[in-house]
């Protein structure tokens, strides 16, 4: 059970959060101009990395804010947490 440092509320138990999949997949601004394949790439394709992964989390039973997390999926170590819109750490 992770201990997650919500950037708005501080450390909270994982039970208060919801995972929201891979981060930094921007919704295309002009979907109608994309081919089926390009749209499918946005819609369906996710990396599901073993190792360092950038993902979205939502403090759903707290402030309800979305934020980003860098997590090592091989050992569940949380490397960094940053707000939506902020640059991911290098």
């Amino acid at each position: 059970m992770f201990l997650i440092n919500c950037p708005y509320c501080g450390e909270r138990d994982q039970q208060e959060f919801k995972a929201g999949g891979e981060a930094h997949i921007e919704r295309p601004k002009q979907p109608t101009e994309l081919s089926d394949d390009e749209w499918a790439e946005y819609l369906f394709m996710r990396k599901n990395i073993k190792g360092i992964q950038f993902e979205r989390w939502n403090h759903v039973h707290g402030c309800r804010k979305w934020f980003n997390m860098v997590r090592d999926t091989s050992n569940d170590e949380i490397k960094a947490i940053y707000k939506m819109g902020e640059k991911p750490p290098a």
Binding site: K18, G20, E26, R27, R56, N58, V60, R64, K65, W66, M84, G85
Partner: peptide
């Protein structure tokens, strides 16, 4: 509500 909040916060802030 969750879905609407998601779009507002992440895609259309």
């Amino acid at each position: 509500l969750g879905k609407l909040e998601d779009y507002l916060q992440t895609e259309w802030p």
